[in-house]
């Protein structure tokens, strides 16, 4: 068994890979080794894995129905009557609601993480690569979006589109892409005149191929880092919208909305607002730690040395 794993490790760390698959697996494995040596990043990853598992297995883990109201058992303190985190003003079990709320948070995060960086990547690389008036036009549009505070702009979008999770995601995505466009453009500008881009141009490659096959892979790493670090902000914005009643609608157990409901009782029944607050804190912190670790792995300046 041990010799087997040793063989695998040597195979992965080989300086002379013999196949395409080995080369790419080896690159991933080396990245993983760097990542693994960062304790805090591993902690962040661990917290996220726990949260994702909790979200997936919420029906199995939950002790109560998250929507079942029990006015007789409202505002119970944590630990009383089998309610691990207590109950809220309508007698719903907070522990179960947090578990189901993780589903909503992760859903929001995934949707935003798919939409905003993609828009930013396309806008930024096209602007940076094309240059000239295309660059000016795209970047001025980006500037207009950047000029508004994010939450205010998201509020305006949600107000126009109507409240609800999907619209909140859309609003957050629309406000989150400009920084990504900026990063992608800056990276593209440094690469546009580099010799390896010239070299592939001299082989007759078209612009689309150059941008998608040669520039994107180098932009993506810095975008992934930035997105991970921004996730905390996105979750907070989502929670903020929920708090203001413009995100997920009651009775859905969105964490921001839960804080909002607990606000009225915050002085006498601290747990109602604090528990979802801690959940938001945990997931934000986890993403930040993960982002720091990813930066160590993916930063091209480190990677080439």
């Amino acid at each position: 068994m041990t010799t087997n794993t040793h063989g695998l490790r040597d195979w992965l760390l080989s300086d002379e890979p013999t196949s395409r698959r080995q080369a790419s697996l080896s690159a991933w494995y080396k990245g993983w080794l760097t990542f693994r040596s960062n304790t805090l990043a591993m902690l962040g990853l661990g917290v996220l894995v726990v949260l994702i598992l909790a979200a997936i297995f919420a029906p199995l883990l939950a002790s109560h129905d998250p929507f079942a109201q029990d006015l007789g058992a409202r505002l119970l303190a944590p630990g009383v009557d089998g309610h691990l985190f207590g109950t809220d003003s309508l007698g719903r079990d907070i522990y179960s609601r947090i578990l189901y709320g993780a589903r909503i948070s992760i859903y929001i995060v995934l949707l935003v993480a798919m939409v905003a960086p993609l828009v930013g990547l396309i806008v930024g690389t096209v602007a940076g690569y094309a240059g000239g008036w295309v660059d000016v036009l795209l970047m001025r549009i980006t500037d207009i979006f950047l000029a508004f505070p994010r939450l205010i702009l998201a509020l305006a979008f949600v107000a126009a589109l109507g409240a609800g999770i999907e619209n909140a995601v859309l609003a957050i995505s629309l406000t989150a892409w400009p920084p990504y466009a900026r990063i992608a453009r800056a990276e593209t500008l440094t690469m546009r005149n580099s010799d390896f881009i010239h070299a592939i141009r001299l082989q007759g490659a078209g612009h689309t191929r150059i941008v998608t096959r040669h520039i994107w892979p180098l932009c993506i790493s810095s975008l992934v880092i930035r997105v991970t670090l921004d996730m905390a902000g996105i979750i907070l914005t989502a929670a903020g919208l929920g708090f203001l009643g413009l995100g997920a609608q009651p009775p859905s157990p969105e964490w921001g909305a839960m804080i909002s409901e607990g606000r009225k009782y915050i002085l006498d029944y601290w747990w109602v607002a604090t528990i979802p607050g801690l959940a938001i804190f945990a997931i934000s912190l986890a993403f930040n730690l993960l982002g720091d670790g990813l930066r160590d792995v993916l930063d091209p300046k480190e990677g080439t040395s």
Partner: peptide, 15 residues
């Protein structure tokens, strides 16, 4: 064409 700097003329993420 062959470029001057072999460190800059190959794509860093391509085998």
């Amino acid at each position: 064409m062959v470029f001057q700097d072999p460190y800059a003329s190959l794509h860093p993420r391509q085998t």
